[in-house]
Each structure stands twice: as structure tokens, then as C-alpha cells.
Amino acid sequence: MPPEPILQISGLTKRFGNLIAVNDVSVRLEPGTIVGLIGPNGAGKTTLFNAITGLHTPDAGRVLFKGTDITGMLSHKICKLGMSRTFQVVKAFSILTVEDTVRVGAYNRHGEKEIQAKVDEVIAFCELEDFRRQKCGDLSLALLRRVELARAVATEPELLLLDEAGAGLTGTELDGLMAILTRLNREKGVTLCVVEHVMKMVMGLCQRIVVLDAGEVIAEGTPAEISDNPKVIEAYLGKRAVR
């Protein structure tokens, strides 16, 4: 008997006009794991995240988070329940400083008294001390992605969805990010679901990988299984590569 899933998606569908961006997707996430969600451009990964976190209302299907039905719930309520996310196209609070951005997240679970301690802790955890007083509008992309992670971590989620947190990062920056994510998972027990194109990160972090193509789940398994799966290679490289 497997443990109760932290997130259970069943039959989730999202359409934009005639386009079916996410088609009847069912996925289970076990608590405490790191799961990768991969797929070619336009596969529907971001849309799936949006539908889970309440930014889009799904056309069909259900999302259960820790046993609670959160389908169509408002994002901030979902966050209160313990799920947060980052964005592929960074949505920075450019007029706020790094510290204040983290503070916004930290208010999710803390009152004015403990807030500063929580902010300091998260900033230290995400290794942002050197930038804490800088305006987000002045930061580089790599730092912005880090701040976005930090503000989500500050909400103390049990499940964190990361949409291409590694995109546009250099090798060292990537290593730093992976170290933080590993610690987040090991020390705080946060379940992670990462959408990623950077294979190094997916293969290095994830215990399980779900592959999405044209809105549908086409494969699921360990990194080793996935990298040998002909359907996956086909989805990424086109038919000719598999022969």
C-alpha cells in the first residue's frame, strides 16, 4: 500500500478555444519526493501548473491536495494549505527589495512579531544575504529566479512547483540552485515538482519523471527508464531519431 499522495491529479483538462493544452492528465505525487515534469515546448507543463495552482480554472478533472479538493480554489487559499510555485517568466516585485519580497511570502504563516526572524532565516537559506537590500528591479535573471524561489519558500509550503527555475542559469549558478533544492527537500521535507529543460538538473535531482507531450502524459518512471524510453526520444527529437 503506497503512502497517501500529497497531490493527486485526475483527468485534468484545460482548453484554450480549440486547443487542448492539457488533456486528461492524471498524476500522483508522493510526499517527500522530487518529481520532474518534462516535455517539449508547448507540451502544456506551464498550463498544468496554472491549473493546479488556481490561476486557470480547469475544464474537467480534479486536483486533490493532501486529500482536500482544491479544484478551482483561489490561489492564495491553496497557498495557505501549503502549496506554492515559481514562474517560468519571472514575475518579480521590481519596486520591492529582496528582503521585502521574501517578507511578503513570510507573512503567509507569521505575524509581525516573528516576521523578521523568518525573513532572515529564508534569506540565509537561499543564500541571498549579499543582495537583501537591493531592489528586485535591479537584479540579474539568475538572482531573480533565486528570489522567486525564496519568496515561495518563505510561505512554508509542503509542496513547491518550480517552473523552469534553471532556465538561463550558468553551470555554477545551476549547481548552487540544485544544492538549495536538495537541502529544501532533505532538511525541510518539502515535496518538489520541477518543470525543467535542463537535463542535468532533472537527472541529477529527480527520483521520478513524468513526461508530457501535446497535453498528455506519455511516460512516467525513473530517470534511467525515461532516458531509454523510445516514446520520449520520439517526442523530443521527432520520429526519425528512433530507428
Binding site: 495552482t53 488556481g54 490561476l55 483561489l74 490561489s75 492564495h76 491553496i78 497557498c79 495557505k80 506554492s84 510555485r85 514562474f87 514575475k91 518579480a92 516585485f93 521590481s94 519596486i95 520591492l96 521585502d100 519580497t101 517578507r103 511578503v104 511570502g105 507573512y107 503567509n108 509581525e112 522567486e148 519568496r151 515561495a152 518563505a154 510561505t155
Partner: peptide, 22 residues
């Protein structure tokens, strides 16, 4: 809290919502 929340949602409502801002 209200002030920080307002500044955040003024920049991006979606981003504020997913970190707990009503």
C-alpha cells in the same frame, strides 16, 4: 502586512496570489 501585500500585488497579482496574498 497590508502595505507589503499591496505593493506586491500592484506589481504582479498572480505572483502575489501564489504566495498567499488575497
Amino acid at each position: 502586512k497590508l502595505g507589503y501585500y499591496l505593493l506586491a500585488l500592484g506589481e504582479s497579482e498572480d505572483a502575489a496570489e501564489v504566495i498567499g496574498v488575497d
